[in-house]
């Protein structure tokens, strides 16, 4: 019997991906967003507050090698194991993306801010938080570490990063919740146009998230490391 030729692409197991990604996290994001809409000061930043935190937690729970059932069988299958990540990540992005899109429309309608500006406000920190959660769990092999990384970093960034850049302005590219207003203040300090500073920050944040995800995807190619056969601890 001739061997089945490898397809150019492998099918996605969407049903499993949605089950494993706890799509109800989208409902939590939606609830937090609605809560934020009640607070006048945060009305314009509802999505920006809810999505990075909840999507980051959801991502941290996506793939932990030690807790993954039948990992050995999945590694033995012809489909690359990184497909698990792609499909689950897609499920997270769909669940959270729905909230993001609806939130953007609502915020634009209520505050009059251009939808693109709203999206630029929440998308980069969400990507960064997802990358942080995924990588935190992958490196430590414990979902709790990924979740902790997200729930410590995201609120700290939201509440404290303004103070941090007031003391160390050079760290502004790492501020997850950098606002155009800060870019305007920093323009004089850095002798640059505010738009450039804001763009640098948004690109840097997005890159952080993307690099974390790439690190994970490359890490998943190493089956020995995934199985933890050479680890010193569990």
């Amino acid at each position: 019997m001739a061997a089945t030729p490898s397809p150019h692409y492998w099918p996605f197991a969407w049903r499993m991906a949605f089950r494993a990604s706890s799509p109800w996290f989208g409902i939590i994001s939606g609830a937090i967003f609605l809560l934020m809409m009640i607070i006048p000061d945060l009305r314009g930043r509802g999505v920006e507050v809810a999505l990075p935190l909840i999507a980051g937690i959801q991502a941290a729970l996506l793939f932990s090698p030690d807790d993954e059932p039948a990992l050995e069988m999945q590694l033995a299958a012809p489909r690359p194991v990184s497909y698990i990540l792609y499909e689950r990540l897609a499920a997270v992005l769909i669940a959270q993306g729905i909230v993001g899109v609806i939130g953007t429309i609502l915020i634009s309608a209520i505050t009059g801010v251009t939808p693109l500006v709203v999206v630029i406000g929440w998308l980069p920190p969400t990507i960064a938080a997802v990358g942080l959660g995924l990588l935190g769990t992958f490196i430590s092999r414990r979902s709790s570490a990924g979740v902790l990384a997200v729930i410590l970093v995201i609120p700290s960034m939201f509440l404290g990063a303004d103070l941090l850049i007031m003391r160390f302005p050079e760290l502004f590219p790492l501020h997850f919740f950098f606002q155009p207003m800060f870019a305007a203040i920093g323009a004089g300090y850095f002798n640059a146009v505010p738009e450039l500073l804001y763009a640098i920050n948004r690109i840097a944040i997005t890159l952080l998230g993307v690099l974390a995800m790439l690190r994970l995807i490359f890490g998943m190619r190493n089956a020995e490391s995934l199985l933890g056969v050479n680890r010193k601890s569990d």
């Binding site: 937690i57 807790d67 709790s144 979740v147 729930i151």
Partner: peptide, 14 residues
């Protein structure tokens, strides 16, 4: 019954 559920409970306790 699992780490994952335990973490969820931990999150609820935050």
């Amino acid at each position: 019954g699992s780490r994952r559920k335990a973490i969820m409970i931990g999150l609820v306790l935050v």
